[in-house]
């Protein structure tokens, strides 16, 4: 197998896996009932996934990460503006590294 073939194969396999997960999740969820526990499971998913992305990322940055996250939330509650909230967190992390 030449390097070019291998590269093509690697990309195609990675793409197929990713696409299968994306579409597969949606189609499989369609098989679940729309009431009761299954419904509560589905309704809770967005929040719990996003939280699982955010919490370890923030914790791994130490106290400054916590502080930046807290400021981001506070800024979001105050202004309702995602850009302002993001900037507050980013500026705090930048400052912490400049110190």
């Amino acid at each position: 197998m030449t390097e070019n073939t291998a590269a093509f194969l690697a990309v195609i396999l990675a793409a197929a896996a990713t696409y299968a997960l994306r579409l597969g999740g949606l189609l499989l969820a369609g098989k679940l009932p729309d009431t009761g526990r299954a419904r509560r499971f589905m309704d809770a998913l967005p929040g719990t996934i996003l939280l699982s992305i955010v919490v370890p990322a923030s914790v791994s940055l130490g106290p400054w990460g916590w502080f930046a996250s807290a400021c981001t939330i506070a800024c979001m509650r105050l202004t309702g503006n995602v850009l302002a909230a993001m900037l507050s967190g980013v500026v705090i992390m930048a400052l912490s590294r400049a110190l």
Binding site: G65, M76, A85, V90, A94, R97
Partner: peptide, 29 residues
């Protein structure tokens, strides 16, 4: 250096605020 690695976490954290549905989310979260 510019804190940009935190940009994604910050955006997701800000968006998380609108995913909160009240007390019933506490235990799952």
């Amino acid at each position: 250096r510019l804190g940009l690695d935190f940009a994604f976490t910050a955006v997701f954290t800000a968006l998380l605020c609108s995913f909160w549905r009240g007390g019933r989310d506490l235990l799952p979260w």
